[in-house]
Write a protein that binds this DNA or RNA. Structure first.
Lengths: 344, 344
DNA sequence: CCATGAATTGTTAGCGCTCACAATGACCTC
DNA sequence: GAGGTCATTGTGAGCGCTAACAATTCATGG
């Protein structure tokens, strides 16, 4: 690990290593590329020179010659929330397993402008493809109208968009939650939904409504929150007012809002689950320790990551996507103390 | 935005654009680089050709010629936790403001091997520098012994490491929390600490202990958790056993564990804050809605991001770091309902 | 009307790597 | 021992861009 004798200003090049080892630069390249036809002693000489000089292949030159950067891009927003953060992690993990590096652009808000700028930046960064976490309707629209020189896979766009996408089946999740409450003996299920322009929120509303209708129940008007505990708290205060007038069960579109709802109910003297049962969505690590522990729907973010990367790589390689280019992943219901057999 | 007439196999090059616009490739380069001495009509011609052909500069070639990739790397772990996720976001945001793209490697666990591999990958990716979120002692050791061809700034290493680093002043945070409880009238303060090999956990223990000792109080033996709500729950069960035997206040090393503690106390019939006051650390978005809302210490992750990137860029540019290369950032106490004036 | 210098544009070399192909030599086969 | 094969290594030509310098154009003043 000694320092080499080249100018300290410039890191050593492959040619420097070759000279040192007494071979051609191409042989060095072969050693680095694990090419089979290199004599064992030659390889050793080269490796020794590499080690001695602390040589590292220049990635830009390599990328220029091979036309591959082995880098993917991700555009995301709200990355401190559990869902996006988990997806991000899963994506990076899956990409790494495939030999790719991931460059991330985290936006405060997803608009045509910010998305466009993000794609430009990633393009300047030489990514071979991009995963867009585009949970809002506006983002998906932006995505379809924007021109980009690489394939893009959307995640969290809900069902029914034209671009290749990977999604957790939100309607199914809502159905699981709603059916669970009905099975517990509740006559109807109220719903605190997410923001109107979020695909996932819309799909959860759809799944909830469809399930109630299938059970022959007229769905009450859903409330709206913005995913935050505070908005859940406010909605919870409103919901508390309906207790005793037909409200016995609430399906909340995410765990954070459910936390707010629980607090509001508690403050209003409404007991969970005895008076009102509550179901959340996401299974954040905290929900198991809420008061009471929250029944919720878990999404398999790891699967989302794997499938998204697989789909994107198919697109990059020009392969026909293995399977379809609209992937749906099944969520799973977790029953905890916030729901309880209800006996009217 | 029409399609160009070049081979669909190869994206257009600068030379293609030059030909189309009737200028030399260098003029195209000048236009793209906003070089001043280009006639206005020439610029227009070039821009038109670029638009028409959908030309995009090849980042690899550019990087090769300029020796700049304008990419930074980040190594992190536990990225779905609020703290790391927030730091990650802040880092990316700050880097973007400086014109850099960020490549992230998220590790499941931080060991010499995984860290070394991560740095290698980032090196292969051509990053100009790396921010390492290295909250564990082992990671810092790995960092100091690992050789890398670019500057590295460590974040969350606590005080007193040899490498350039940026940190929230954890001892101060612990001091704020502990003093707050003492000021509320508590005779002593118990502590549920984080994992032993985490710098931040150690610093919080130190700050807590020092504050108690400064107040002339013998600190009780701290409990240990692993940051998870579950570990907090278990510790909380143990703590509940000490109620009535001198335990009236607990400083918990993070909000998630505090959540577990709250649940355990509640289940044991111990009221918060009337019987036991609880303070957390981090101010995760949920803590305001815990039962009861949690007094906690907020860390300014945004400042961490900005300062880290500034420091790293100084190192990359070979500038003397503006100020020191050990940056400490002040945390802030948020008082909520989980602490309460205590009247013995 | 030409020298003068500034503004504008073009030309030539790389940046450090991989790819395609050529060259070398060792080893067989008949 | 000629011809062929295979393993191993070297050579040359880019990849698409920027930097440095050369060349050209243009306006201006004496």
């Amino acid at each position: 690990m000694t320092e080499s004798n080249h100018s300290p200003l410039r890191p050593p090049t492959m040619a420097d290593v070759a000279r040192q080892a007494g071979v051609s630069h191409q042989t060095v390249s072969r050693v680095l590329g694990d090419h089979p036809n290199v004599r064992i002693e030659t390889r050793a000489k080269v490796l020794h020179a590499i080690e001695e000089m602390g040589y590292r292949r220049n990635s830009s030159a390599r990328a220029l010659a091979t036309r591959r950067t082995l880098t993917l891009g991700v555009v995301a927003s709200n990355t401190t929330l559990y869902g996006p953060a988990s997806t991000l992690f899963a994506l990076e993990d899956a990409a790494r397993a495939e030999g790719y590096l991931v460059s991330t652009v985290s936006l405060r808000e997803l608009t045509v402008e910010t998305l466009s700028e993000a794609l430009d930046r990633l393009s300047e960064g030489g990514v071979e493809g991009v995963i867009a976490l585009a949970p809002q309707r506006s983002a998906v629209e932006a995505l379809t109208e924007l021109r980009h020189p690489f394939p893009v896979v959307a995640v969290g766009t809900g069902s029914g968009v034209e671009i290749p996408s990977v999604n957790v089946d939100q309607r199914l999740g809502a159905e699981l939650a709603t059916n669970h409450l009905l099975a517990m003996g509740h006559r109807t299920v109220w719903h605190l939904a997410g923001p109107e322009d979020w695909h996932e929120a819309a799909d959860r509303v759809d799944g909830w409504r469809a399930t109630l209708e299938a059970a022959g129940v007229e769905p009450p008007a859903p409330l709206r929150g913005d995913w935050s505990p505070l908005s859940g708290y406010r909605a919870g205060q409103e919901l508390a007012g309906w207790v005793g007038r037909g409200l016995t069960a609430v399906f909340v579109a995410n765990d954070q809002m459910a936390l707010g709802v629980l607090r509001a109910l508690r403050e209003a003297g409404v007991r969970t689950p005895q008076d009102v049962a509550v179901v959340g969505f996401d299974d954040i690590p905290e929900s198991e320790f809420f008061a009471p522990p929250l029944t919720t729907v878990r999404q398999d973010f790891s699967a989302v990551g794997t499938r998204s990367i697989a789909l994107l790589l198919d697109l990059i390689e020009g392969r026909t996507p293995s399977g379809t280019s609209r992937v749906a992943i099944e969520p799973q219901l977790l029953v905890r103390a916030s729901t309880f057999p209800y006996h009217p």
